[in-house]
Each structure stands twice: as structure tokens, then as C-alpha cells.
Design a protein around this nucleic acid. Structure first.
Lengths: 125, 125
DNA sequence: CAGCATCCACGATGATACTG
DNA sequence: CAGTATCATCGTGGATGCTG
């Protein structure tokens, strides 16, 4: 009874191996699709946010993981960090141009997951 | 010198926490964005394939991970498994309707990663 | 060919405490 | 507030060997 529609193959030209193991794409993909990476990128797609704001919104993340994930994304040039030399400290994070491009692709995916999760993970009602 | 363009916020309505921890979306997202999940889904987006074919194309995957990932995706109703009672055994995997929907969103993301990986991960030439 | 069962290692992640 | 340092652990994932 499973739906099994399989329209025309998608246009893809890089899928032959699916990628070479250890190629840059794999690394980038791992950063981006990491457990917390997706969530942070999505959160930031709504605009710049402070550390504490991100921590609160990304429910369940530890400080360590937040710091680590942000650093990775920053090194990848997807997120930009802006620290203000005030006391108490204030640091804002935002998407770079690249990060924004990426989030534009990530958002529909996450939205789909959000819409279908209930049915898929729980009852198939 | 980093590009720092930040156009209008993307339309998103579910991002307030970013999701509740432990909600179905998180689980589904973890399955889909898992290290091998993405790659398998992408590989299958080009059409049904046999176990051995998937194993070969998804370079670097172990049998254990292939089996495990396929099972998860099958339980989630994204991949369908068709075993033929012949000797030697032949099993084909393909995307379900849901799986195809998903892969349609995944492909642009992966393509983007593929196109930008070199620059992002390696030299920023 | 297409798996499953086991054992094992290490890295990812969490909890806690401390600091500029 | 925005982190960093340290430690304990938990699970992911690899290697191997066996089977229908």
C-alpha cells in the first residue's frame, strides 16, 4: 500500500560515486547537516542573534556544542561573528552571503521534515 | 572582507524553539541528514538500485551502515525494498513517493555543497 | 549476493565548573 | 554574558566472520 511514485530522475551529474570519499563536499555536508548545524543555520535564517538567544532557541544544545558548531560554521564562512567590546559582553551571530544561500536551500527541507515528521515518525494515520 | 549580505528573512513559522527537543521533526531530520542518509537518498534519486550498487556508489560506507541506514529510511517510508526470491539473492531499493519528495529538496542542497565545497573547505581562492 | 551478529574503538556529545 | 576547560560516557560506526 505504500505510495511508490517515481517520476523522472532528477538532474544530477556528480553522483557517480556518490562522491569520492574524503572529498571536500563530504566535509562541508557533514558540517552543514550535523545535528546542531542545521538547527543553528535555520535559526539564523531569521536574522542575527545573540549567543544566549541561539542557546535558548536551539532547545537542548549544550554550551560546548553551540560554541563548537558556531566555530565550525564560522570557519566555513557561513556564519559571521561580531563581538562588541562591552561589559557584559555581547556577541551577535548572523549568516554570511554564503550562509544565506545555503539556508535558502535548507529551509524548504526542514519545512518538509516539519510537515511530515508526525506522520512518518509516529502513527501513519 | 567577508561577504555579509543578509537579505530579507526567510518565511518560517516553526522556528521558535528552534524545534521542541525530542519532537518528531528532530528525529526525522536526524535520519535524513545522517552521514550516510543523505548520500543514499541522493544516490537513489537517480533510480532504483541494488544493494551492491549502492554499496559501491556510496564510497566508504560499511555494510553495517548501509544496512542500518536503509532500514531506518525504509521504516520512515522513504525507501522501499524489493527482494526477489532468486539465488543468488537480488534486492532492489528505490525511493517511495515521500522519499522522492524529500530528495527533490535534498538534491539542490547537495549540489550547492558540491559546488562550493572546494572554495569553502580548502583554499578560499 | 545480500545480509546479520559480535566485538571494539574512538570521537562526538553532555555535565559541570571556572573565567574575562 | 559569552564563553573555555575538563572529565565521563554514550553511541556511532568500522572490522571481522558467518549464513541463506
Amino acid at each position: 500500500m505504500e505510495a511508490d511514485v517515481r517520476p523522472a530522475p532528477l538532474p544530477l551529474s556528480f553522483t557517480d560515486g556518490v562522491f569520492p570519499a574524503g572529498c571536500p563536499s563530504r566535509i562541508l555536508l557533514d558540517h552543514v547537516t550535523s545535528k546542531w548545524g542545521v538547527l543553528i543555520l535555520i535559526a539564523l535564517s531569521e536574522g542575527a542573534q545573540r549567543w544566549s538567544e541561539l542557546r535558548r532557541r536551539t532547545e537542548g544544545i549544550s554550551e560546548k556544542m553551540l560554541a563548537q558548531t558556531l566555530k565550525t560554521l564560522e570557519r566555513d564562512g557561513l556564519v559571521s561573528r561580531e563581538a562588541q567590546p562591552v561589559i557584559p559582553p555581547r556577541v551577535d551571530y548572523s549568516l554570511t552571503g554564503k550562509g544565506y544561500e545555503l539556508s535558502a536551500l535548507l529551509v524548504p527541507l526542514v519545512a518538509w521534515a516539519f510537515d511530515n515528521a508526525e506522520e512518518i515518525i509516529n502513527g501513519k494515520a
